[in-house]
């Protein structure tokens, strides 16, 4: 399972860096994902009615805040001492995705002229209930499920449809995390035909 995730990451990286080269933004210190994201949005900026608004910046910043928290949550899980090697590498892989989401969201907010929110100095997680690997995986699965709902709730709000597409792309990633975590817990990986 870990190998196939690594393979996917490598493939995604290749696609993103090729996109980066195409948009010519590769050299200015923004992550590959952000480049892909901004490249797409700039192409669409000419379309009528597709302009991002102040409200779009607010949506991106709320999502960024949740991503920062998810990064901290996976850090907590990885350092808990409760995870076996397989679960730990899963946690770190998923944390890496959340870091990419956060980088991409922050870069987009800045690009649109807004101020990207910073991560909190510390997060107050309810850790009393975390006593086993399964507890940590269930905690992470809950966050990922919530993230799917949150992005689903954000997609229709964007004035700029290209930003909606980006949110949907992150939603898909969170849904994969949720499914893999459920599977690791021995639960049906995909319990429903629609997410809500």
């Amino acid at each position: 399972m870990t190998r196939s995730i690594d393979d996917t990451n490598a493939a995604t990286g290749r696609i993103l860096s090729r996109r980066g080269a195409l948009t010519g933004l590769g050299g200015i210190g923004i992550s590959a994902a952000a480049v892909a994201l901004l490249g797409g949005r700039e192409n669409l900026a000419l379309a009528a009615g597709a302009e991002p608004t102040q409200e779009d910046i607010t949506i991106l910043n709320t999502a960024l805040s949740a991503e920062h928290e998810a990064i901290a949550a996976y850090q907590l899980g990885a350092e808990s001492g409760l995870l076996g090697q397989g679960a730990k590498s899963l946690a770190l892989t998923f944390q890496g995705h959340h870091k990419e989401h956060a980088d991409a969201l922050a870069a987009t907010v800045k690009k649109l002229g807004g101020t990207a929110g910073e991560a909190q100095a510390r997060y107050d997680f309810a850790t009393d209930g975390l006593k086993s690997e399964a507890d940590v995986l269930r905690f992470a699965a809950g966050l990922e499920k919530g993230a799917v709902s949150a992005y689903l709730g954000a997609v229709p709000l964007f004035a700029d449809r290209e930003l909606a597409r980006v949110a949907a792309s992150i939603l898909g990633d969170e849904a994969m995390h949720w499914a893999v975590l459920r599977s690791a817990l021995g639960e049906a990986p995909v319990p429903v035909a629609f997410v809500s």
Binding site: T62, S65, A66, E69, D124, A126, G142, L143, K145, G146, A147, S149, A150, G153, S196
Partner: peptide
């Protein structure tokens, strides 16, 4: 309430 859990929890301020 699962839909709210990305940003809220009963007892703690989050997003």
């Amino acid at each position: 309430y699962d839909r709210c859990l990305a940003c809220h929890s009963p007892a703690r301020n989050r997003t």
